[in-house]
Design a binder for these strands. Structure first.
Length: 463
RNA sequence: UCCUCGAUAGCUCAACGGCAGAGCGGGCGGCUGUUAACCGCUAGGUUCCCGGUUCGAAUCCAGGUCGAGGAGCCA
């Protein structure tokens, strides 16, 4: 069957003027009178619905008109421009086939539903305006990220999802095992005997592909990962999920400033691309969720990002420390309230905070010449908070080994990682971008559960 | 794990110690072009669970379950 997608009607309406076309889709609304009726039809190809008009001259008029919201139709008819009406064009149907009926029980009504209610029906909520717009943006964003890195000569690196290292201790991990959960084989000391497990040792789902990405970066120069990541944390916030997607570029012969430049360029490129490709969706989010969204995104595309050192940030915060619940002093970790104040009140735009005290950061971050701070950077954005965390990596094998010991880690576990420094080591840098947090920032969706089609959070894994 | 808030019709909510309601959605009817159409009629309830206080509990109290927001962890 040759069918026309509704997206193309919106892109090139004049090309279809007075043409006979076939459109397929699902009813978002059906309104009938005695002799004329209307269907708002969506096929998922774009945000706006197509209006279908049909009259009692259709032999199955009553049948079609009495269908419920959600029903699937195949419509043949004439495309007509309607410049004087609320909708730009419509299809005058000559034949409507009821492809799949819906029912009065259909949970989605022609009204506002709370996002919280919609989370309880993940198999249907994707059909709503908000969720479909979000997931269309999500798809376009994923493509934009690949496009950006591809056009900049990066190699797309697949790092393992099942891992044997706990990387940087970046959070609680999900155990991966085929051992009998009730009666696992035991060692003489009574512990589970992982030598009998599938891989002959304990394994988990990855919390970060960074260390493996470094392997790839020291081969290909510029690489990025883009894949699922898992954290078994008992997090109950609107911006944490147990399963999320992360983008982790890693670049060789690069310093912290190169890392920040890359992050900034990538964010700008992606925002611009989504603005171009998803104008209907962005207008929708702007109208329904945040009247300043488009203005804010455009200003991010055009302006530079702010940058402060951790030490400068502390100086700024100390002047207004009475505002805060948590104390501000050099050496203290920045709390969410501090980060939000900096990015939302002081700088009012995306903000890099760099050079944190080494005690606050991971062992692999490069020690600065002051001996107290490391070449780390966090990118904070208003409303969402930390969206990127990155650093220049410690390329000096002796310093790295020292830091591994300081952090209480086992040097033998990191011999391969030290080898990267012993054999042609170079200074290099990278970062992790939370894909969902980027989607939240672009759509103004406030909850990470609403930017993942089938979200996993503690005690919640529907479908 | 800690703190706060919440749970009433299919959905969104009201009633806050005295007959459990509205809007939307559903059903039926009406309407010659609607735009989350409109108009009329109508059905629809274990007020999350379990105890307690009271003449009387959706409402107050204790415990629990589930959810949401925040903190921490971080992306």
């Amino acid at each position: 069957m040759k069918r026309t997608e509704i997206k193309d009607l919106f892109l090139f309406p004049s090309q279809f003027d007075s043409q006979e076309i076939t459109v397929c889709g699902w009813a978002k609304s059906i309104r009938d009178h005695k002799t004329t009726a209307f269907i708002h039809l969506t096929d998922g190809s774009c945000h706006s619905p197509l209006q279908v008009v049909f009259t009692s001259e259709l032999q199955n008029y009553a049948d079609v008109a009495s269908q419920n919201v959600g029903a699937a139709f195949i419509v043949k008819g004439t495309f007509k421009l309607t410049p004087d009406a609320k909708q730009p064009f419509e299809v005058e149907a000559s034949e409507i086939t009821i492809e799949g009926s819906s029912s009065p029980d259909y949970p989605l009504q022609k009204k506002h539903h709370s996002l919280e209610f919609l989370r309880t029906i993940p198999h249907l909520r994707t059909r709503t305006n908000t969720l479909s717009a979000t997931f269309r943006v999500r798809s376009v964003t994923a493509y934009a990220i690949h496009k950006f890195f591809n056009e900049h000569g990066f190699v797309y690196a697949h790092t393992p999802i099942i891992t044997t290292s706990d990387c940087e201790g970046a959070g609680e991990m999900f155990r991966v095992t085929t051992l009998d959960p009730v009666k696992p084989p035991l060692t003489e000391s009574g512990d589970p005997d992982y030598s009998k497990d599938f891989f002959g040792k304990p394994t988990s789902l990855t919390v970060s592909g960074q260390l493996e990405a470094e392997v790839m970066a020291l081969t290909f120069g510029k690489v990025y990962t883009f894949g699922p990541t898992f954290r078994a944390e008992q997090s109950f916030t609107a911006r944490h999920a147990s399963e999320f997607w992360m983008i982790e570029p890693e670049i060789a012969f690069a310093e912290l400033q190169d890392d920040m430049d890359l992050a900034r360029d990538m964010i700008k490129f992606v925002l611009q691309y989504v603005m171009e490709q998803c104008p209907q969706e962005m207008a929708f989010f702007n109208d329904m969720y945040d009247k300043e969204l488009i203005q804010r995104i455009n200003s991010v595309i055009e302006s530079d990002f702010a940058k402060v050192t951790y030490t400068e940030a502390i100086e700024i915060l100390e002047k207004v420390k009475d505002k805060f619940q948590y104390p501000v002093f050099w050496g203290a970790d920045l709390q969410t309230e501090h980060e939000r104040y900096l990015t939302e009140q002081v700088f009012k735009k995306p903000l890099f905070v760099i050079n944190y005290p080494k005690e606050l950061k991971a062992f692999y971050m490069r020690l600065n010449d002051d001996g107290k701070t490391v070449a780390a950077m966090d990118l904070l954005v208003p409303a969402v908070g930390e969206i990127i965390g990155g650093s220049q990596r410690e390329e000096r094998a002796d310093v790295l080994e020292q830091r591994i010991r300081e952090c209480g880690l086992n040097v033998e576990d990191y011999e391969w990682y030290l080898d990267l420094r012993r054999f042609g080591g170079t200074h290099h840098a990278g970062f992790g971008l939370g894909f969902e947090r980027l989607i939240m920032y672009m759509t103004s969706m406030a909850n990470i559960r609403d930017v993942i089609p089938f979200p996993r959070t503690p005690n919640n894994a529907l479908l």
